[in-house]
């Protein structure tokens, strides 16, 4: 019990012995991982090693995949997210998500932000909503770009702006954790840099987990790094997990070293 209490003081999400199956296929094999509060944790590894699967299991987005099944525990405030009495809808509000391809709703910028609060039973005046929209857009460093065109379609923005709009949208439902699934893979280097700076800002108030293919990005913009690899049965396993500086300069596992030095993967 004492161990659990120390967990939750320091860690926002505690993954214990997680196995994920797609039908009969085991995609993730026995992963345990502690995600630290107010830090950025990067999940890296070659394609198909299951890092996105792990990320989606953290807010039960895998429930939406036919035949997906999760074993083990994901603890969030000492509560197992996969317990029977936990509602995935509530989980996803408190653990938000940003996707690989920017996916704003085909609505106005304002409505993109306001949608989340509205569907979650937001009660407040029009001017309070205006304030909320402004606050979220400011936090996502997008306010100055869009303050004069809040009524225009979110799809009219550039790719990088769309992705920041998606981040602002996620912030509007007041999550504690933001999961990012390769958020920069569809963006140019300048937009990527902006998103990374934004992550650094957001870290003060949120816990962030990010999947990335870009090792420089993981090295630059994360506090902890988890390296995943497929085992012989093509199931993803956690090879090494530690502070980013240590993992990149002094990897404990030979396979980690091979990967980060570009010898395979």
């Amino acid at each position: 019990m004492t161990e659990k209490q120390t967990d939750t003081a320091q860690y926002t999400l505690v993954v214990r012995n997680m196995n994920v199956y797609y039908g009969a296929f085991r995609a993730i094999n026995n992963v345990s991982l502690n995600i630290e509060r107010n830090k950025i944790t990067a999940l890296i590894g070659p394609s198909g090693c299951g890092k996105s699967t792990v990320l989606r299991s953290l807010n039960r987005m895998n429930d939406l995949v036919n035949g997906a099944r999760v074993e083990g525990e994901v603890l969030f405030h000492e509560q197992n997210l996969y317990a029977n009495d936990v509602d995935a809808v509530e989980v996803r509000r408190r653990i938000g998500m940003v996707f690989q391809k920017p996916n704003p709703f085909p609505k106005s910028i304002y409505d993109n932000i306001a949608f989340g609060p509205r569907i979650n039973g937001w009660k407040g005046t029009k001017s309070e909503m205006d304030d909320l929209v402004e606050r979220c857009l400011r936090q996502a460093a997008l306010w100055d770009d869009v303050k004069d065109k809040l009524k225009e379609s979110g799809l009219a923005l550039s790719g990088g702006q769309q992705q920041r709009l998606c981040i602002a949208r996620a912030l509007a439902v007041e999550p504690e954790v933001i999961l990012m699934d390769e958020p920069c893979s569809a963006l140019d280097p300048i937009s990527t840099l902006k998103i990374e700076e934004l992550m650094m800002e957001l870290r003060q108030r949120y816990t962030i987990a990010i999947v990335t293919h870009n090792m420089q990005q993981a090295a630059r913009a994360s506090d902890y790094t988890a390296f995943f690899l497929m085992n012989d049965q093509r199931a993803g396993e956690l090879v090494e997990y530690g502070p980013t500086g240590d993992l990149f300069t002094n990897p404990k596992d030979k396979r980690t070293e091979d990967y980060i030095t570009g010898r395979f993967g």
Partner: peptide, 27 residues
């Protein structure tokens, strides 16, 4: 209707019906 749109909606804590009503049907 693109999967990304549904994911975005679910990711904000929308229920299935809210996702259908606000995003799937209009599109």
């Amino acid at each position: 209707v693109p999967l990304s749109l549904r994911q975005a909606s679910y990711g904000l804590g929308a229920t299935k019906w809210q996702t259908i009503w606000h995003h799937v049907l209009p599109n």
